[in-house]
């Protein structure tokens, strides 16, 4: 489903990605871990075509997203939903309008249907009654939840989450994860989650990988990663200083 082949990316002299190889199967829930500033967000931006690789490809169902144009690119992007690390909400729109925006612009649903869908999506992330507020008037965690609602309201096949639950309390975080699990069971959702929640995230995902020094140093099932014998992974999981 998602296949990353030998991905390289440099910013000036800062070689952030130096040959990332990774496969995520359809219907899989996958976690990417790694130290701060190592290029996880950069990687996820390549997966939806926002950044172009210097070398290598991101293939989704065999299509190289960096080289697609026009209709094909639109069709592919329509299947993918992304939650940015900092939410990227439209700050001149209210919470309701933020979630309604993709529905209004991309579907032919009527106002009533949109209204119902948006309210349900917001309810799902525990934001009932906050519809009229603006992004500047809500907390960081609430913003994140609006971003999750905006992503899920479009029923994507693949979701890319850049730290969806950082800054959220455990109750809300669990409810977001149980939503992801429910969607996985019902619609065979593929999810790619960047997370710093260790070890919590391993309970949710099928497999995980660790990004270090621009490469994936280990991929495996949750258990394999948790009981890793790779020293860097071990240290990272225990929070030890190198």
């Amino acid at each position: 489903m998602i296949e990353i082949v030998d991905l390289h990316k440099k910013f000036g002299t800062n070689a952030v990605l130096r040959g990332v190889n990774l496969k995520v199967a359809k219907g899989e829930t996958f976690a990417l871990i790694g130290a701060s500033g190592k290029g996880k967000s950069v990687l996820i931006k390549h997966m939806i075509g926002l950044m172009k690789p210097d070398q290598g490809q991101v293939k989704i169902d065999g299509q190289d997203i960096g080289r697609l144009h026009g209709k094909k690119l639109v069709q592919l992007k329509n299947r993918i939903g992304i939650v940015f690390q900092f939410g990227a909400l439209f700050d001149s729109l209210s919470v309701f309008d933020n979630v309604a925006f993709p529905l209004q612009e991309k579907t032919r649903l009527g106002a009533k249907q949109i209204n119902d869908k948006v309210l349900a999506a917001l309810d799902n992330v525990g934001l009932k009654g906050e519809e009229e507020k603006f992004p500047a008037q809500i907390s960081g965690g609430m913003r994140k939840r609006v971003a999750v609602a905006r992503c899920l309201v479009m029923d994507p096949e693949i979701i890319l989450f850049d730290e969806p639950t950082t800054g959220l309390d455990p109750v809300i975080a669990n409810s977001i994860y149980s939503t992801i699990q429910k969607l996985q069971r019902e619609r065979n959702l593929t999810s790619f989650i960047i997370s710093h929640e260790i070890p919590g995230i391993f309970k949710i995902v099928d497999r995980a990988a660790m990004l270090h020094d621009g490469r994936i140093i280990q991929v495996g099932t949750s258990d394999e990663i948790q009981n890793s014998t790779v020293p860097i992974v071990q240290k990272f999981l225990k929070g030890e200083i190198e």
Partner: peptide, 20 residues
């Protein structure tokens, strides 16, 4: 200023990611 703020807060990227 408006478009610039949308750029630095990734709102333009968000549009792009929605294939808009």
């Amino acid at each position: 200023a408006e478009i610039g703020i949308m750029r630095i807060s990734e709102q333009i990227d968000a549009l792009d990611a929605m294939a808009l």
